[in-house]
Nucleic acid binder design. Structure first.
Lengths: 216, 216
DNA sequence: GTATGTATAAAACAAGCGTTTGAATTTTTC
DNA sequence: GAAAAATTCAAACGCTTGTTTTATACATAC
């Protein structure tokens, strides 16, 4: 039985509580109580409630994105100067996070999905700093793999893709539970990854002549 | 200059404020101040803060969904006993809400996107009651239009579709603004609709033999 | 062993929260 | 125009919030 540090216990408690009820929905008192720490511990170790959230996100997403970028680097190195096939690229994009977060009771993706919709500056700052690099990296690769798309189309479809992934990972909560009445739609992460890859690959392959610049 | 009722002013104020900073992020005092109403007005007219949010959502989404269902009814009637083509079905699904919410400064889709990720019972109850009927209606139609998909696949892909739409409508806030550095990805709603239709249609057409029941 | 920086603890702070009350006021109804 | 109903209003209630303070314990270093 390893003795966990107060910091780690705070991060764990905050992660599970924020994921369930959102940042604004949880008080520092609830967090410190669950973590069996003193009320002042959050402000001592993380400066503020927002600092705690930032730390908790970086703890999870940082290593995950490092892994994804490493895998993309390796795939691109193996491909030489050839662009990656779209489905391979998307598979690299999806696999690590879906596998990583596919544990029973894991609700962090739900929190992340919420944060992606939160326009408050403090949240945007964290989300951008964590996801900006990986978004740019994959967008560049996508641009090489799908040269038939205009930049506007590429960005639009990448937005579709991100929305589909985020939604699927956060369990599609409401609609799914409403539509399927309790039946979880897809319980095998590998299957979900493959469905997502197929779905989006087709969407990116498509070449629609419209939406180009009007006059050029 | 029509005299607006207190109720309407409260709904308008709450809609814009909730959309910007979320349900928990806005106080009744801010709402009543913006609406130039008394602090007690919210509880008098809507019973509670949650009641106000419910009323505001139903005011916007109710008529919108009625319209969508009417359009689907008409299309199905015109098609006789033939299933609708997938792209036509999806076009009906996307068009009304995207057109309706495509006004400058319209941020309600952002609120809706957040609510779709909110697991708190009060929110789930509202969201389900508002979106359940239309989800069921379109899922049934989709099932007829895409008979090659297993039920699990259908639900999964519908989740992708919903995620893509919700995300695109709520402006893909973070990723888009980060990636494009200010450039809005798609400013013409008709173009967005068409991109979304194409993207998802391809995804639904795809026939992947896996994901069927293991033994049957 | 005494100093030094780190961590925990209990208590208080000032501000904000959703909601309720009860009286004043306006609007509707007959 | 009087009675009744609906609405507005100022004030207060009770409670929770994030953060700060002050004091105490615990390390490791010299």
């Amino acid at each position: 039985m390893k003795p966990t540090s107060t910091q780690a216990r705070l991060l764990d408690a905050a992660e599970s509580l924020f994921s369930e009820r959102g940042f604004k929905g949880i008080s520092i008192r609830e967090i410190t109580e669950k973590a069996e720490a003193n009320l002042a511990a959050v402000n001592y170790h993380f400066g503020s409630k927002a600092g705690l959230m930032k730390a908790l996100i970086e703890r999870q997403i940082g290593p995950l994105n490092q892994l994804r970028i490493a895998e993309l680097d390796a795939a691109e190195a193996a491909a030489g100067d050839q662009p990656l096939a779209i489905d391979n690229l998307l598979r690299i994009f999806f696999t690590a996070p879906i596998r990583h977060f596919h544990k029973p009771g894991q609700k962090l993706p739900n929190l992340l999905a919420r944060l992606h919709q939160d326009p408050s500056p403090e949240v945007v700052e964290v989300v951008v700093s964590v996801f900006q690099p990986i978004a740019d990296r994959f967008l560049t690769a996508l641009h090489r793999s799908a040269p038939h798309l205009s930049e506007a189309q590429l960005i639009t479809r990448a937005m579709f893709m991100k929305g589909a992934m985020v939604h699927a990972m956060s369990d599609g909560l409401v609609l799914a539970s409403a539509m399927t009445e309790g039946r979880v739609s897809m319980d095998d992460p590998e299957e979900l990854i493959e469905e997502l890859v197929q779905f989006c690959t087709e969407g990116f392959r498509l070449h629609t002549p419209n939406s180009g610049p009007q006059a050029e």
